[in-house]
Every structure is written in structure tokens, then in C-alpha cells.
């Protein structure tokens, strides 16, 4: 009989083994769209952390009350509520970032990662575990997006978090901040993570 995963393992799995972007290939739409700079990727990640953790907590607390026929509408209402909170708070307190993230914050509602984790985990596990799982997944997502955004910003503009890193003589690769650059970089990151995993298995 397999033993129940320990709390630290529950958290860590979201960072690498079951990283939502690199291993499970979930939530790719916002990943590709908002990682044209490091700060954008990072901010999207923060919004997802908030949404995922709060929704997981509430849904896990209510998991025995929600009848299974209305599982999906209830989850969506909970998720949409928190996304609205995140969106409005961003617009009210950091309007420049809100403008940069644009329509992608509302799209968190239909981000597969959120609904997927509620269905797969939060609705079947106690609150403590669910929150840890949510934290792991969303932090894994944030780290991935920040790295992806940094690579694209570094090669496409020459800066990371708007700090000039590349020497001024560096001719930026414009393609990196455009859509093809997003696909290329993400594809390479997934490839590298697969390769690293295969090596670990040996």
C-alpha cells in the first residue's frame, strides 16, 4: 500500500515533478501571452497564486457540502469571484501592471490549472493539504513564468525587470518578445526539463 504523501512532498511536487506548465502542459495560453517581460510574468503568477490558494481553501472546506451535480458551477463561481477580486485590486492599486496584463487576468477563470486542481485535489482532500498543493502548483507556475519572461525580456530587449543586463552594443532579438519567441522559448524549456527528468530517472 502506498503511503500518503508527506506535506513537504505535496508542496514540492508542484515545483518540478508535476510543474503545471513544464510537465502537465496546463495554462499555456496566459503563459505564452504575458511573458513578454519578467515583471508581467511574475505579476500574472502572483494573481494565480492568490486565486488558486483562496479557491482551493474554500472549495476544500466546502467539499462535503457541495453536491456532485453542481460541482462545476460552484467551482466556477468560487474561482470567478476570486479572479474578480484580483483583477479589481490590481486595477485599483497598481493600474500600470493591470494595463500590461490586460485581458489575461479575467482569463484566469478558465485557466485549466485552477479548475483542474479543484477537481483533482481540493474537492477530495482536507484544507491543509489542498492549500499546500495549491501553493506548490501556483509557485511552480510563477517561477516558470518569471524565468520564461526573463529569458524573453533579456534577449528581446536587453533588460530583466527593466534593469539593463546586456551590454548596450547588444542588438536585441525582436522575435523573442513576439509570439514566435514565446513558443520557441517555452518549447525549449519543456524539452530541457524533460531531458533533465530522463537523466534523473537513469
Amino acid at each position: 500500500m502506498a503511503s500518503k504523501t508527506s506535506h513537504p512532498k505535496e508542496f514540492l511536487k508542484g515545483l518540478w515533478d508535476e510543474n503545471p506548465v513544464l510537465r502537465m502542459l496546463l495554462g499555456l495560453c496566459p503563459t505564452l501571452a504575458v511573458t513578454n517581460s519578467a515583471i508581467n510574468g511574475f505579476s500574472m503568477g502572483l494573481a494565480v497564486i492568490f486565486t488558486l490558494v483562496m479557491s482551493s481553501a474554500i472549495i476544500s472546506l466546502a467539499r462535503n457540502i457541495i453536491p456532485k451535480e453542481v460541482r462545476i458551477p460552484t467551482f466556477i463561481i468560487v474561482i470567478a469571484t476570486f479572479v474578480t477580486i484580483a483583477d479589481k485590486m490590481l486595477a485599483a492599486h497598481v493600474p500600470d501592471i493591470s494595463k500590461a496584463l490586460g485581458p489575461f487576468v479575467p482569463l484566469i477563470v478558465v485557466n485549466c490549472i485552477i479548475l483542474g486542481r479543484q477537481e483533482a485535489f481540493a474537492s477530495k482532500n482536507p484544507v491543509g493539504r489542498s492549500v499546500i498543493d495549491a501553493l506548490g502548483m501556483s509557485i511552480g507556475f510563477t517561477i516558470t513564468l518569471t524565468i520564461l519572461g526573463s529569458i524573453r525580456e533579456l534577449l528581446g530587449v536587453g533588460t530583466i525587470f527593466a534593469v539593463q543586463i546586456m551590454p548596450l552594443s547588444f542588438e536585441p532579438w525582436m522575435v523573442m518578445v513576439l509570439q514566435p519567441g514565446a513558443f520557441l522559448t517555452l518549447g525549449l524549456m519543456i524539452g530541457i526539463s524533460n531531458w533533465l527528468n530522463a537523466r534523473r530517472a537513469k
Binding site: 457541495i66 453536491p67 463561481i77 470567478a80
Partner: peptide
């Protein structure tokens, strides 16, 4: 449950 969730939201 569904109505209560919607109202709370």
C-alpha cells in the same frame, strides 16, 4: 448550495 454560493459571491 448553488444559490447560496452565487449570493455570497
Amino acid at each position: 448550495v448553488l444559490t447560496a454560493t452565487a449570493v455570497l459571491s
